[in-house]
């Protein structure tokens, strides 16, 4: 009789405790998901900044290794390059074909103003960034580049974040001498020699209208206050 009573008491005590524990588990799971989203955001910031730092110094392999297996790169009107090997070779050719930079080559891909959204499931993300390019060759030429990145990112089965698609909408590449304000017609955006010699896997995915025309690179993310798409 006594053991039975004890067991019953224990059960009665355990039932609400189980419910409480479940609630605690739920809360911890919820918090874990939120922290993982925050960590995902930090991982994306690091990824994109690393891409800039690597390309700056001609580390083509390291830059390409930031991409997913089916990752892609699209810059200006050069078209879309698919996969790490093609991305690496495209980046190399875009900068003269050699490893690293050559003497006097200015190549700053300054990557700023991130707006990053990680999906609810914490496995993918989108990012808009501002590109300020300082490009040139000592004693020969120097340019400003203005652009907007609209990129996507994904977290692999191994838990590592990678760039899924990098898309740089180039607004202009302008001679330093007189600056962007004196650009005419389409001269602010030309197809690279690299794209001519080493054609892309796919043609450009968008139509481009460089400065002095006006183009608003489409926003992947909605207005953060209205929640509506930006057109």
């Amino acid at each position: 009789m006594r053991p039975l009573l004890l067991a019953a008491t224990a059960l009665a005590l355990a039932a609400p405790a189980a419910a409480e524990a479940q609630s605690v588990d739920r809360q911890i799971a919820d918090l874990t998901a939120r922290v993982e989203k925050l960590e995902g955001t930090r991982a994306i910031l690091k990824l994109q900044r690393a891409f800039g730092y690597y390309v700056d110094r001609g580390l083509w392999k390291q830059a390409a290794d930031l991409f997913a297996d089916d990752g892609s790169v699209e810059i200006g009107i050069d078209g879309v390059y698919m996969g790490r090997d093609r991305i690496e070779e495209y980046l190399r050719r875009l900068h003269g074909g050699q490893e690293g930079l050559i003497y006097g080559q200015l190549n700053e891909w300054v990557t700023l103003q991130p707006s990053i959204i990680v999906a609810e499931d914490g496995r993918s993300g989108t990012g808009r960034w501002r590109d300020v390019g300082m490009l040139g060759q000592y004693k020969q030429h120097a340019e400003w580049r203005d652009g907007i990145y609209e990129n996507t990112y994904e977290k692999g089965a191994d838990g590592i974040w990678r760039i899924k698609a990098l898309h740089l909408y180039v607004n202009f590449v302008a001679p330093y001498e007189r600056g962007w304000a004196r650009l005419r017609g389409e001269e602010g955006l030309v197809r690279s020699q690299a794209a001519a010699d080493f054609p892309p896997d796919r043609p450009p995915s968008a139509t481009y209208a460089p400065f002095p025309a006006v183009q608003v690179p489409p926003f992947q993310q909605p207005n953060p206050v209205t929640g509506r798409p930006v057109r």
Binding site: T41, Q113, P114, S115, I116, R128, P224, V230
Partner: peptide, 14 residues
């Protein structure tokens, strides 16, 4: 903090 950083970046883009 993250939401505000996005908000200000988006302000600039618009």
């Amino acid at each position: 903090q993250l939401a505000i950083e996005n908000l200000q970046a988006d302000f600039g883009y618009y």
